[in-house]
Computed example of a mutant assay.
Amino acid sequence: MAFGEHTDPQIISVLRSNGAPGLEISLRDGAWASVPHDGDGDSFFVNVGDTLQVLTNGRFRSVKHRVVVNSEKSRVSMVFFGGPPPGERLAPLPALLGDGGRSRYREFTWKEYKGSGCKGRLADDRLCRFEN
């Protein structure tokens, strides 16, 4: 079993696996790169989520990733998602707007964001609906 390409919606995701390979990230040119696995399973991977991308006005980017099937060893992962409450309003932090104060994203709630994700596919760019 595997998990298709997606970005994480939350602020951050903290992932720990059993040391089996299979996690891949999408590079800027669209190619997939294997993330070196931790053979001992002692490491944590921290993924930036879509919410942190918005809060930092794109300074930190949510990376599209996927998990592929590995025929040598089953991959087991545990993940902790950190995200805001449903009514929380999300927008770039004023200190991170940069030159000219241009916001890349309009203000929206976590509930609006999560609701928009239900209208598309897992691999869809969910943040494009909130871009200025």
Rank of each mutant, 00 (worst) to 15 (best):
Y113G: 04
G83K: 06
D8Y: 02
N70I: 00
K73R: 15
L90R: 05
V67P: 11
R106A: 14
D38L: 11
S116A: 08
F130Y: 07
V76C: 10
M78L: 13
Y113Q: 07
G58H: 03
F130D: 03
G22V: 00
S103M: 04
D38H: 09
I12F: 12
I25T: 10
D125W: 01
N47T: 06
K119L: 13
S34W: 06
G100V: 01
G115I: 00
P21K: 14
R121I: 04
N18T: 04
P84W: 01
P84D: 02
R102G: 12
Y105M: 02
G101P: 09
R28V: 08
C118N: 03
V79T: 09
D42R: 12
A95P: 06
G98C: 11
H65D: 06
A95S: 13
P92Y: 07
H37E: 13
H65T: 03
P9T: 10
F45L: 15
N57S: 07
R16F: 07
K111V: 06
P86R: 06
S74Q: 15
R61K: 09
S116W: 00
F44L: 13
Q53F: 00
A123E: 14
S13A: 14
L122C: 02
R61Q: 13
T7P: 04
V79K: 06
L127Q: 00
G98H: 08
F60V: 10
R121G: 09
G41R: 04
R129G: 05
R61C: 11
R75H: 05
E72T: 11
S43Q: 12
F60L: 15
K114H: 09
G98N: 07
S43D: 13
E112L: 01
D40W: 12
S103A: 15
R129N: 12
H65G: 07
V76T: 13
R102C: 13
G115L: 06
M1A: 12
F80G: 12
F108Q: 04
G19L: 05
N57C: 10
P84F: 02
S13T: 15
V79R: 07
G4N: 06
D99W: 09
I12P: 08
